[in-house]
């Protein structure tokens, strides 16, 4: 990737794989596995944002959950600041968890309805730090101000807030332990467009002020283009294209990325998009019984014989662009 990225990244994920056991009535009743995330690697530099994009079922959320140890990785390494996060246990893990925090998609179900807003924000402080009562309250006061909530709102319960305000509480909770990495799993998809803009601006302001790094999971390419520095496009558990913001959006290489981009309806490219749209028909293959070759071959307009036989590896196009496709020169 770019030079800035290769210098001691904050997060370095290597060969991460997650598989789920699927019940099958096979011949011998053996277990089959669904490889939700299949051998992916990426890096995230301090203060930057990496997006993972893809359709539902591509494994983007599972990958993010595995990075944060909310689902168990089957193999691979997740290095945070040079230490393997997946190998930690007990107290080391407790300290490290404070460094990685999550903002979830649904602000309605991700806050405990029985806790007051201040208790929601306080929970990670209680379980991951050893700060005194006074320190905790000071942090809570300061976080409420930082995310744009009033002090008296600390006493309210989640149902008394609007969706956008709830997401602000979720952000305050994620910031409580002063994390270095925040994983935003579709953090704005459930919000109305006007509120979405408020939250996106807030996230970028906080990133600047606190030097945060974001791992940003989203299906909205407009949001990704606005927020992210590097983008990994996933399809069926694999990264098919990995590039910095400008090269990915200005010269997408993988046919899947091109199809994704052309499918987005936009007010800016009116008239153009319909003519250029590359529809991808057909359905993705059965994730439990993956085909031998490229996983996208069944829907790909460029697929040739080699695509059905050999799975393409991520190849380096330039120091800012990698793509896994036989048909890209």
């Amino acid at each position: 990737m770019t030079n800035t990225l290769s210098h001691s990244p904050l997060l370095k994920v290597e060969h991460l794989g997650v598989r789920f056991a699927v019940k099958r009535n096979g011949f011998f009743g053996g277990k089959s596995y669904l490889k939700a995330v299949d051998d992916i690697s990426f890096e995230l530099a301090r203060g930057k944002t990496l997006a993972i994009v893809g359709e539902s079922g591509s494994g983007k959320t599972t990958a993010a959950l595995a990075v944060g140890r909310l689902v168990e990785a089957f193999h691979g390494k997740v290095q945070l600041d040079g230490k393997d996060f997946l190998a930690l246990s007990d107290d080391d893990l407790r300290v490290a968890r404070g460094k990685i925090q999550f903002i979830f998609q649904d602000p309605y179900s991700s806050l405990n309805p029985r806790l007051r807003a201040k208790a929601v924000v306080r929970e990670p402080l209680d379980s991951l730090t050893d700060k005194s009562e006074a320190e905790k309250q000071e942090i809570i006061d300061q976080l409420f101000a930082a995310v744009g909530l009033r002090k008296e709102q600390q006493e309210l319960f989640p149902h008394q807030f609007s969706g956008g305000q709830r997401q602000r509480i979720g952000i305050a909770r994620a910031l409580a332990t002063e994390p270095e990495l925040i994983i935003c799993d579709e953090a704005v998809s459930a919000l109305d467009v006007a509120v979405q803009a408020q939250i996106l601006n807030l996230l970028r302001r906080l990133q600047e002020e606190r030097g945060l790094s974001y791992l940003f999971i989203s299906h909205d390419l407009g949001v990704v283009q606005h927020m992210c520095d590097t983008i990994a496009v996933m399809y069926m558990g694999r990264i098919v294209e990995y590039a910095d913001r400008k090269s990915l959006f200005n010269s997408p290489q993988h046919p899947y990325t091109k199809a994704l981009l052309s499918a987005v309806p936009s007010v800016k490219k009116r008239g153009v998009s319909q003519a250029q749209a590359q529809m991808i028909d057909g359905d993705p293959p059965d994730p439990v019984n993956l085909p031998a070759g490229c996983r996208f071959a069944s829907r790909c307009p460029l697929a040739a014989e080699v695509c059905r036989q050999k799975e393409p590896e991520l190849g380096v196009l330039s120091d800012a662009h990698q793509v896994a496709c036989h048909m890209v020169e």
Partner: peptide, 23 residues
Amino acid sequence: CVPHLLAELTDERPPLAEIGGIV
């Protein structure tokens, strides 16, 4: 207020225009 996909992307990233408040 919506980040639209831009045809020609540059390094510029001004903050999104906001509509404050809610309905």
